[in-house]
Amino acid sequence: MVSLPEELQARETAARQRVEELQAEAAELAVRLERAREDLSRLEITRETVAQVLAELSAAEAAPEARVKDALGPEEASAPHGVGVMAVPPWREGLVAQVLPDMYRDIVEIVADAPGPLQAKQVVPRIGLEATTAKIEGTRGKLKRLVERGWLDEEAPGQFTLARRGPGRDRANSQ
């Protein structure tokens, strides 16, 4: 016959083992949950970016063609809308921020008005968006695109300023 203290000890050991197993499962679920959240965030950013690109393309098609031809060179103004269309044209002498899509123009103006370099998380609330990871990452992508096209500089990783040779150091929103 088993004594009561021995039975309690056996049950305590079994309960302790079950707790450890559940803790291991919980840790694994936490890792899986974080991966799923990252996947969701990437999908949200992708969906928002696609929606924005489609909206910009629609707006560009609806805009008067004369205004676009004045802002761009003749070879760029005659390019068809659709695949291969560059919504953010490369900066060149004489090109003003008004040729950019609204969101990009707002970003350039905010960066131009800032006393120093800005990070994406600082730009997001200034353009009227909620400071969520998806919005910050989407804005970071726009900032990087503006750097690639010569409108902005990235002095240090994640620190964006108006390009030194960019849209006239005379403030983008004053034109």
Results as ranks from 00 to 15, higher is better:
Ala71Tyr: 10
Ala60His: 03
Val83Ser: 00
Gln17Glu: 10
Leu95Glu: 01
Ile136Leu: 02
Pro115Ile: 05
Glu6His: 08
Pro74Glu: 10
Glu28His: 15
Asp153Cys: 04
Asp39Ile: 11
Thr133Lys: 06
Val99Ala: 08
Arg47Gln: 12
Glu93Pro: 12
Asp170Arg: 15
Glu38His: 05
Arg37Asn: 07
Ala36His: 09
Ala15Ser: 07
Glu109Trp: 04
Val147Phe: 02
Gly158Arg: 05
Ala114Tyr: 08
Pro101Cys: 07
Leu40Cys: 12
Leu40Val: 09
Val2Met: 15
Leu22Cys: 05
Gln17His: 10
Gly128Lys: 08
Glu109Ala: 05
Gly116Ser: 13
Pro125Ser: 02
Ala55Lys: 05
Leu40Met: 11
Thr133Met: 06
Leu57Thr: 02
Gly141Ile: 03
Lys69Ile: 00
Arg35Gly: 15
Pro90Ala: 13
Thr133Leu: 12
Arg67Asn: 12
Gly168Trp: 06
Val108Met: 05
Gln9Glu: 10
Leu143Met: 03
Ala51Trp: 02
Leu33Lys: 15
Tyr104Glu: 14
Glu20Trp: 10
Ala120Cys: 04
Val83Trp: 05
Ala163Ser: 15
Val50Asp: 08
Ala163Leu: 07
Asn173Ala: 08
Pro80Gly: 09
Thr133Phe: 11
Glu76Leu: 15
Lys69Ala: 15
Gln52Pro: 01
Ile45Tyr: 01
Lys69Pro: 00
Thr161Gln: 10
His81Val: 02
Val85Trp: 07
Val53Ala: 13
Tyr104Trp: 03
Glu75Ile: 07
Asp170Val: 15
Asp106Cys: 08
Thr13Leu: 05
Met86Asn: 02
Glu137Gly: 04
Leu8Val: 14
Asp113Gly: 12
Glu12Phe: 01
Arg16Met: 09
Glu148Thr: 01
Thr46Val: 11
Ser3Met: 05
Ala79Glu: 15
Val31Asn: 07
Asp106Trp: 05
Glu38Ala: 15
Gln119Lys: 06
Leu118Tyr: 03
Leu22Arg: 13
Arg42Phe: 01
Gln159Lys: 14
Thr13Lys: 13
Pro101Arg: 05
Ile45Arg: 15
Ala63Met: 07
Val83Gly: 00
Ala14Leu: 13
Tyr104Met: 14
Ala112Ile: 06
Ala156Phe: 03
Gly166Leu: 11
Ala60Met: 07
Ile127Phe: 00
Phe160Ala: 00
Glu61Met: 00
Thr132Glu: 12
Arg32His: 09
Thr139Ala: 05
Arg16His: 09
Arg171Tyr: 11
Gln122Met: 03
Glu61Cys: 03
Ala156Leu: 06
Glu7Lys: 00
Ile107Phe: 02
Gly141Ser: 09
Gln122Cys: 02
Gly82Lys: 03
Pro157Asn: 08
Leu40His: 12
Met1His: 13
Pro64Asp: 14
Gly138Lys: 04
Arg164Leu: 10
Thr139Trp: 03
Glu7Asn: 01
Leu57Asn: 00
Pro167Ser: 06
Val19Pro: 06
Leu162Pro: 05
Leu162Tyr: 04
Glu148Leu: 07
Val19Leu: 14
Thr161Pro: 04
Glu44Gly: 01
Arg32Met: 09
Glu137Phe: 04
Asp39Met: 08
Ala24His: 09
Val111Glu: 00
Glu75Asn: 09
Asp153Leu: 01
Ala112Val: 07
Ala97Phe: 09
Glu20Gln: 15
Pro115Ser: 14
Ala97Ser: 15
Gly150Gln: 12
Asn173Lys: 00
Ala79Asn: 11
Glu155Gln: 11
Ala120Gly: 10
Glu25Ala: 14
